Amino acid sequence: MSKSMWQGVIPAITTPFAEDGAVDHAFLARHALWQVEAGCTGVVPFGSLGEGATLSFAEKIAIVRTLVAALGDRAPVIPGIAALATDEAVRLARACEAEGARGLMVLPPYAYSTDWREMGAHVRAVVAATGLPVLLYNNPLAYRTDFAPEQIVDLAAEFPQIEAVKESSGDLRRFAAIQALAGDRLVLMTGIDDAIVEGIAMGATGWIAGQVNAYPAESVALFERARAGGYAAAKDLYDWFLPILRLDTGPKFVQLIKLTQQCVGWGSERVRAPRLVLDGAERAAALQVIEHAIATRPGTAR
């Protein structure tokens, strides 16, 4: 089992939309290349940040096709696999594998949250549908399904292809709990932008990142400093970055991160309904944070 896919900074890449509302594939390809050229180690399309719930099945497959063609062998494409129904998630996993995805990030169903018997059956069906390596995503705040450390480890024991867990419960104690049960069997990753340094201190070796969409070089530098020297080595860069990273943690994180991209000249704030672009006092407050970060941006992230 190779765990190299789950190391470093991996953008939860946003889905760009053209003025007519269609996916902007040309920009998507450029954006993915920019991320990888800055040192990112892969891309995760149509997760929560990628507005996966608003994309059709065909749009998702087209996105994977575009990213695989753009990145080639330079970095893996690791789609987020979620759907309203288990059968659709299974079909999506198989279709993504056929298009050249090299791993899968498996999520709970979008709308239905229940007990472990049903959620476990859903995950098992999706994982068994392909031979690809799997990152299991635990985000109970977003999906109202909480995979306990014991359940995660049981799934990994059943399916060797489950190689990593993206632990985004917000409870850093989960990292220690998983390691106590699994040892080094599972790669630990985090998906919470404003707890990345803390996550690394607890054993995370990968970061599914959000504001990396606007600041890839800084994200990679922050990760590398924290991994090499802990909080002390990362503090100066973290202090600058934290106000921007905190935009990843609220209900409108998609709009906020896309607005950040627009402000730095790498994307548009366009989102797909029911989301709407920010306006009024909410937009003004976000712009104040973003513009301050731009004005005080370190001369070099390295």
Rank of each mutant, 00 (worst) to 15 (best):
A111G: 04
P140G: 14
G52K: 00
L107A: 03
G280D: 11
T296H: 13
A217D: 08
G183N: 06
R275M: 14
D171C: 03
T300S: 15
G50N: 02
P274M: 15
L172Y: 11
A232I: 05
L55W: 08
L49H: 06
G50H: 01
R225Y: 05
A58Q: 12
C96Q: 04
A226K: 10
A129S: 13
E291F: 10
G183M: 11
K235P: 02
G52D: 01
F159S: 01
P243L: 09
A12Q: 04
V220K: 10
T114H: 11
I10R: 04
Q179I: 03
A228P: 07
T260V: 06
A129M: 06
R74Y: 07
D239E: 14
P16H: 15
F27N: 09
A233P: 01
V127L: 04
A157R: 15
P149K: 13
A182H: 06
V68S: 09
G183H: 09
D239K: 14
C40V: 03
L104S: 05
E269Y: 05
F147A: 05
L107C: 07
E118S: 14
V254D: 09
M1R: 13
K166L: 14
D115C: 13
T145W: 12
F147T: 04
H31R: 01
L237M: 08
P251F: 15
I290E: 07
G267M: 05
E282W: 10
A217R: 15
T300E: 09
I294R: 15
A101C: 04
D193R: 07
Q151W: 09
P109R: 15
V289E: 02
V44C: 13
M5Q: 07
H25E: 03
G39V: 09
G39H: 12
A195W: 07
A301M: 03
Q255H: 12
V90A: 12
V165P: 01
P149M: 10
W207I: 05
P160S: 14
R275V: 08
L71Y: 06
N138F: 08
A157V: 07
N138S: 13
S2I: 04
I13P: 00
T86F: 10
T41G: 11
A70I: 01
I192R: 11
I294L: 15
T41A: 14
R173D: 06
L28D: 00
A164P: 00
A83E: 06
A157S: 12
Y112F: 15
A89N: 09
I294D: 02
L33E: 14
I257K: 11
L71P: 03
T15S: 01
V212P: 02
V197Y: 08
S268T: 15
D279G: 14
I63N: 00
C40T: 05
G52E: 01
T14A: 11
A221I: 04
L245R: 14
V90Y: 12
Y215G: 01
E269A: 15
A182M: 05
R74P: 01
D239H: 13
D73W: 10
W207R: 06
V64Y: 00
V289P: 03
W240T: 09
A148W: 09
D194V: 04
T54F: 11
R124W: 07
I244E: 01
G72V: 13
L278N: 11
M105K: 10
T145G: 08
L67D: 01
Q262L: 05
T205S: 14
V254Y: 12
R283S: 11
A32Y: 01
E167L: 13
D279Y: 12
E282I: 13
T66M: 05
R225W: 05
I208M: 13
A301I: 02
D73I: 02
F223M: 01
A273Q: 12
